[in-house]
């Protein structure tokens, strides 16, 4: 029964990873870049929420009202000042600049908020749980997180399918030059995608802060989980990201079930196993193609 509980908790945890990974997947889908500072931007969202709670005493959920629009602006400016130039400079440069940003953010957060662990209050829902069976309690907060993740991914899906912005995003993603010829301003489209991506990062960051304590150096670790979710889910696919998040969450919980210290390891091992499986499939495809040529 505890194994069953581990799987259920893993699925719920996967919801959080999908939420964190959604912006990453969007940005990769549109621009083919991976923003290594995504997890750090999520942490910035958590710290901004923390500041607002400290100074105004408002509920953590209400802090989303100023934090999310702020994140939209940050994302827009980030694209216009840094990512746009990086993209023009080649495929590798965005990795280098966003890695630089990750280091800058982690250390600035440490400077201004100390390396101590902070946390955000999740309200009454934080302690409430549904006692499904005698050995399985489902925390409502985790259900809420999974629900938000599905809502964000569904919202992104609808925007991409049915709005003018979505059509422009898809057109730019498949061929930016041709989209330009047809009157799409690809720079503006990229900037809006980056704005949305950073806003989802900040949202995930606030939820992360409510789930567990956070410190300035966690951006990297959490980011790694989000990356793994995106890669397992098949780079850039929105619903694949949800699946990837769930696979990762379940692997971690099962790892922790074997030994509490194997939590992170469980996820990493499954991620690497997926990579090995894919590389073997690729190798056999290549061998097959070679045999047909010969």
């Amino acid at each position: 029964m505890t194994w069953f509980a581990a799987v259920v908790h893993g699925i719920l945890l996967g919801g959080f990873y999908a939420l964190l990974a959604s912006g990453l997947a969007l940005l990769f889908g549109v621009m083919r870049i991976i923003n290594l500072a995504h997890g750090s931007l999520a942490l910035v969202g958590a710290y901004m929420s923390f500041l607002l709670v400290e100074h105004t005493g408002m509920s953590t959920y209400l802090t989303l009202l100023p934090v999310l629009p702020g994140a939209l602006i940050v994302g827009y400016l980030l694209q216009r000042t840094m990512l746009e130039r990086s993209l023009r400079a080649g495929q590798l440069v965005p990795l280098l600049t966003t890695f630089g940003l990750l280091i800058v953010i982690a250390n600035l957060l440490q400077k201004f908020f100390s390396p101590d662990v902070h946390s955000l209050d999740e309200g009454a829902i934080g302690t409430a749980a549904w006692q499904a069976t005698s050995s399985l309690a489902i925390p409502w907060f985790d259900v809420l997180t999974l629900g938000i993740a599905v809502a964000v991914l569904g919202g992104l899906h609808l925007v991409l399918r049915h709005t003018q912005l979505g059509r422009e995003l898809r057109a730019t993603a498949s061929d930016a030059d041709t989209a330009e010829l047809l009157g799409v301003n690809s720079r503006a489209v990229y900037a809006r995608a980056a704005a949305i991506a950073v806003a989802t990062a900040a949202l995930a960051g606030v939820f992360y802060g409510m789930r567990t304590g956070f410190d300035p150096n966690q951006g990297g670790a959490e980011l790694l989980y989000a990356f793994e979710a995106v890669v397992i889910g098949g780079l850039g696919s929105l619903w694949g990201t949800l699946g990837g998040g769930i696979v990762l969450g379940v692997s971690q919980e099962i790892g922790a079930q074997i030994n509490p210290e194997y939590f992170a390891l469980g996820g990493h091992v499954v991620f690497l196993a997926v990579l090995v499986g894919r590389s073997m499939a690729q190798a056999s495809r290549i061998r097959y193609a070679l045999r047909r040529l010969a």
Partner: peptide, 24 residues
């Protein structure tokens, strides 16, 4: 043999994961 199939960002992440695994 595992990570070199990946390109750019995916390669970067995979190497980072490998480093984390060593560390753990």
């Amino acid at each position: 043999a595992v990570v070199l199939w990946l390109r750019n960002g995916a390669f970067a992440i995979a190497t980072w994961v490998v480093a984390e695994v060593f560390s753990i």
